[in-house]
Amino acid sequence: MEKALIGLGAALAVGIPALATAYAQAKIGSAGAATIAEKPETAAMMIILEALPETMVILGFVVAIMLILQFA
């Protein structure tokens, strides 16, 4: 039971930020595509903005790994 809860905790640590990142990237992506269509020179800036929310998942991944390695 304890292991199952640790597993669930690790899954939530990655899953919830992944959903948040997906939501943010969807919004940024659609706005970014429209911006690049208008101003192609903003492509790099849009890639940067698109990539920014990923940090949430990376940190979630670290938390998940720590949970598993420390407690499982």
């Binding site: 890639i47 940067i48 990539a51 920014l52 990923e54």
Partner: peptide
Amino acid sequence: LHSARLHYV
């Protein structure tokens, strides 16, 4: 993509 991001950001 991620290597580019690490450089750009």
